[in-house]
């Protein structure tokens, strides 16, 4: 999954049409398999710093109440770009914009198990 933001936007309308019929969550351009991969990655690999329950560790907690003042675009930007000077790395080499936006929205809602 390496689609760029512009790619993703250009396919968005098509994806939405399909999603109405097939699978609502594919509005983000992600299929069920990719979502499962992202859930695994967030729980296991983000979890090494943020805790597997996302309750925090060396990194801050990523729970709905701690993220309520941040909008999902800003969270997605941090996921992709990292935090300079802090251990939070830029994940843009491994995650697409669509991945990051999906993760950010799910973190705000309460991340799936």
């Amino acid at each position: 999954m390496t689609c760029t933001l512009s790619n993703w936007l250009s396919h968005l309308s098509q994806a939405v049409v399909i999603s109405l019929v097939v699978l609502p969550s594919s509005a983000y351009g992600l299929d069920a398999q990719r979502e499962a991969e992202l859930i695994h990655l967030v729980r296991q690999d983000c979890g090494s710093c943020h805790g597997m329950t996302l309750n925090g560790g060396l990194g801050r907690p990523l729970l709905p109440e701690t993220l309520k003042d941040a909008d999902s675009e800003a969270i997605a930007a941090i996921i992709l770009g990292g935090v300079p000077g802090k251990p939070m790395p830029p994940w843009s080499g491994l995650l697409s914009e669509a991945d990051a936006v999906w993760i950010a929205k799910k973190l705000k809602e309460g991340f799936p198990q």
Binding site: D45, S48, C49, L58, P87, P89, P90, W91, G93, L94
Partner: peptide
């Protein structure tokens, strides 16, 4: 002086 790679795990 060298560009560090992103550190995905400490």
């Amino acid at each position: 002086g060298e560009k560090k790679l992103p550190v995905y795990k400490m």
